[in-house]
Amino acid sequence: MTKSFNVELLAADLNSQGGVYCPSPKADMKLWNSHPKVYLDVARTGHAKCPYCGTVYQLKEGEHAGAHH
């Protein structure tokens, strides 16, 4: 698997720490045949790239992680 993907996320897709795990069903990955599960901090910069597969997880334009109400 050398093809990497870009995955657009909503703020609601992030966990309570502001991140996601890869591999992810959102990237059309089968969890059983992928790389080890890694945590990616998306909230800090609005995007994160998986060091194993190169998938980029990015907040959709206009979405803000951890917005204060």
Rank of each mutant, 00 (worst) to 15 (best):
A65Y: 10
Y39K: 05
A67M: 07
E61N: 12
S34Y: 04
L9A: 12
E8M: 09
P36W: 11
P23N: 01
N6C: 03
L31D: 04
Y39S: 08
G18I: 00
D28W: 05
L14V: 06
Q58D: 05
L9P: 01
A48P: 14
V38W: 02
Y21N: 07
L14C: 07
Q58Y: 06
H68G: 03
S16K: 09
P23L: 06
M1N: 14
K60E: 14
L40Y: 13
R44W: 00
L9V: 02
C53A: 07
P23A: 08
V7T: 08
L10F: 10
K30S: 15
V7N: 08
Q17A: 15
G19M: 09
V42W: 04
E8H: 05
Y57C: 08
Y39E: 03
C53F: 00
L10C: 11
A48W: 02
K60D: 03
A43H: 08
V38L: 09
D41G: 15
G62D: 07
K3F: 06
G18F: 01
L9Y: 00
K3S: 09
K26M: 13
A43N: 03
K26F: 04
A43Q: 10
K26C: 00
S34K: 06
N6Y: 10
K30T: 11
Y39T: 01
K60H: 14
P23W: 01
D41M: 08
L9M: 05
V38K: 02
E61M: 04
Q17F: 08
Y39V: 00
S24W: 10
P36Q: 08
S34G: 08
S24M: 06
S4E: 11
